[in-house]
Design a protein around this nucleic acid. Structure first.
Lengths: 343, 343
DNA sequence: GCTGGCACTCATGGTCAGCGAGTGCCAAGT
DNA sequence: ACTTGGCACTCGCTGACCATGAGTGCCAGC
């Protein structure tokens, strides 16, 4: 009973099951693959694979279905990422090129990924732990209100409005504001979001005592914005694809939709993905730490330009998934979106 | 056969069916409501109601189910918006008070609405047809790139980056930029988004011929941003509630999810809602112009501060829906979010 | 115009038998 | 030591059949 053939059988089972979504028996397997052995031999191999926990039978007289462990082995050793055709690649590139701003890039990317894989696509907004301050602007609104605008080098903008005790419409107020704008930008521009707040700490002391309250209030709000902007957002598309799999298979769709609504969960999914060393990470069924996602798999990767990897994106679908093509799509989209973001 | 009693029967049918989600027969009706007549009489009334197209029987020997027309009559004449308790109202208010910025307000509002109604909540971002320019800022990035930031009076921010032929880091460039900033703001601030572009049309002529190309490029991009920002966005929450109704009733969830992904469809839903005169608009089943939403109802209303109604929000659920309470929730949430937005 | 009664319809749920895909195992072949 | 053909067995699936009962429509009487 050669080890090699047993794995070939497993590969064949995975491929057939993914295609037909029905438990695959020894006979059906022989028809669709040239294994060069008889049905009885395949049955013996299957028994062994079942013993190892790689496949399982839904009931006594049915074919076999891969277990999570079976898929894992398949992904790790029995398949390679299926390369995409030149036409597909260029279609991806062209579609993403058309984006006009960051929101649009993200929006197009998830939609594209969802339609390529026909599954649920998830994309984290470019994470800003590594991103830096591009500019900070102060805009007076009426005499006692001030809008603070934070512009980040990824193109994102965050704004805050505060009430002030100073009247900023006086020449005096405008001068203070101009000074503040200059000093704040001189210190913060170029600094990473995480560091920017620290570098501004001693700023109030450089101002007249009378202005220090104002400066402190501004810094407090700016600090808030810096933290807020680091807060990570996530976007998704293709949820209707869940309905399609729902008809194929009794995957209970409710818990999955719930999980998808909890963006924290999604962020964790994409986040832990990045801890793995592989380019494209795959988490299968129970490897997934979240109840409700135990019969789904997540294929994800990181994207971003150059050495600064910024965030994660990926797709979520049933464990019965075409891993090679899905992985190829995820990888290709990540590559292209990284290129676009590098501008 | 009194008209009045027939309507009472219809009301009872709607109420029971909403509660039990099973076709309701004459006998069951008698048990749960004091109609003061016998089962046979109710049957006669039911036959009449069926004749009028207000109820229908799924099959010969089953109870009756309201038709879309039946729900319509119920909503129009047989029910009143159920007032919410003081506790509920204050909970709504408190939850929304906690929001830190516009995104957060919208986010909290949809989530709240979804959990109150246990249905899918939809909310349009504050529409900007009536909103105006608060400030326009130009930020040089390196020597040949310029970021244009548009700040709108609802707190939204839109940004664009353009390449320039001018070197803006020279004193000369900075002077031009300063002049441009002053002139653009002088003309555009306070103007409605729709009008702002027009008011800037003649601006290039006020500059040196050498600078006009730059000015024109900036205006083109700004124009783009003004249009872009008018483009309406929509946010939703509670999609997992669809799964719950899916188990109750063979509402095919797929087409609904698809419709929900097409934000244009949702915008139209909320948009046409505003054309009706009622405070809370209800569109039932086939009254809905979109395939895939023919077995769902949409309860929506407008929100916004004062006389300036800004946008729509609402919920989407199965036609078999508790209209009075849903309408109450939608109305209450709209009231509170309007109050919050008025700051 | 309401009511009780009655015959009729039909979806639902349970039982039962036949079918067939698929298995496990064994004895024989290479 | 594997592989193979054969064979008995398991068990889910399908369709037929039947009993049940909720619900209806209609009619004659009040």
């Amino acid at each position: 009973m050669s080890e090699e053939r047993r794995l070939a059988v497993l590969r064949a089972i995975v491929q057939d099951y993914v295609e037909t979504s029905e438990p695959v028996g020894s006979k059906a397997l022989l028809e669709r693959h040239q294994l060069g052995v008889s049905a009885a031999t395949v049955r013996n191999d299957m028994a062994a694979l079942e013993e190892e926990g790689l496949i399982a039978a839904p009931h006594t007289s049915a074919g076999r279905v891969p277990t999570d462990a079976g898929y894992r082995l398949f992904v790790d050793r029995l398949s390679s990422v299926k390369p995409m055709s030149a036409a597909e690649r260029s279609a991806i590139g062209q579609f993403l090129e058309g984006a006009v701003d960051l929101d649009d890039v993200v929006d197009r990317t998830v939609r594209l990924l969802a339609s390529l894989t026909r599954q649920v696509a998830v994309m984290q907004y470019p994470s800003l732990t590594r991103s830096s301050v591009r500019h900070i602007e102060f805009v007076p609104m009426g005499s006692t209100r001030l809008m603070i605008v934070l512009i980040v080098n990824t193109g994102r903008v965050e704004q805050r409005v505060i009430e002030t005790t100073h009247d900023l419409s006086t020449p005096d107020g405008e001068a203070t504001l101009g000074l503040l704008r200059a000093k704040v930008n001189a210190r913060a521009v170029g600094a990473r979001l995480v560091d920017a707040a620290d570098s501004l700490g001693s700023l109030p002391e450089e101002f007249e005592p009378a202005d220090r309250d104002l400066v402190r209030a501004v810094l407090r709000s700016l600090d808030d914005a810096l933290v807020e902007e680091r807060e990570e957002r996530v976007v998704l598309a293709g949820t209707s694809n869940l309905a399609r799999v729902g008809t194929d298979f009794p995957l209970t769709i409710g818990p999955v939709l719930e999980a998808l609504e909890q963006h924290v969960v999604l962020l964790k999914l994409l986040g832990t993905a990045r801890e793995t060393s592989d380019a494209v990470s795959v988490r299968i069924g129970h490897e997934n730490p979240f109840a409700g996602l135990q019969s789904t798999s997540v294929v994800s990767t990181e994207y971003g330009h150059g050495s600064e990897l910024v965030a994660g994106l990926g797709v979520l679908g049933p464990t019965r998934m075409d891993y090679p093509t899905t992985m190829a799509s995820v990888r290709a989209v990540a590559t292209y979106v990284s290129r676009i973001l590098a501008q």
